[in-house]
């Protein structure tokens, strides 16, 4: 980033997600890592091929790094904001993705709560448009705040009825 001193970049959205998302992401990462590690550990029990030792230890190192680093990194990145003009999110950790949708193009607003999210009192707000390219998601919101956000967004979008295509 040398030649862009005078140039513009998107301002990150205003709000961080709920800090409980840290723990949620950690548990998720731990589950994913376990799913990758367990079969290899079982295989290691049954045979003691050298390459198996190598792959298992490499997986273990990567998994440890993933569980330790990813959640806090994600928490630093993930942000969102919504006002009467647009819904705007920033997500990712290694790979960043900014998404912005004008309010007038919103078709549906849903709340989604997986079992794991419910354990931490979290929710995901999904904002869909007429595109086949996939919705805008705000993950890791406090469940009650998510409800309030959906109510507000619904009120705003109802005031702004169009074809949205």
């Amino acid at each position: 980033m040398t030649a862009i001193e005078t140039s513009m970049a998107p301002r990150p959205p205003r709000h961080r997600v709920n800090p409980r998302a840290l723990r949620w992401w950690t548990v998720q990462a731990a589950l994913t890592s376990a799913a990758a590690l367990l079969p290899q550990l079982v295989a290691l029990e049954l045979s003691d091929a050298r390459w198996l030792v190598v792959t298992t230890s490499v997986t273990a190192c990567l998994a440890a790094a993933y569980v330790l680093i990813m959640p806090s990194w994600r928490y630093r990145v993930h942000r969102w904001e919504a006002d009467e003009h647009a819904v705007y999110t920033l997500a990712g950790w290694l790979h960043l993705e900014w998404r912005v949708v004008p309010i007038s193009r919103i078709q549906t607003i849903d709340i989604e709560r997986t079992l794991l999210q419910r354990l931490f009192g979290l929710a995901t707000v999904t904002v869909t448009t007429a595109s086949a390219a996939g919705p805008v998601r705000i993950v890791g919101l406090d469940a009650q705040e998510a409800d309030r956000l959906v109510r507000r967004l619904t009120a705003i979008t109802q005031a702004d009825r169009g074809d949205a295509t």
Binding site: P10, L94, H95, L96, E97, W98, R99, V100, V101, P102, R105, T129, A130, S131, A133, V136, A164, T165
Partner: peptide
């Protein structure tokens, strides 16, 4: 007028 949203993607 047919654009209904934007995404900016950036890999490492």
């Amino acid at each position: 007028r047919g654009i209904i949203g934007w995404r900016l993607r950036q890999s490492v």
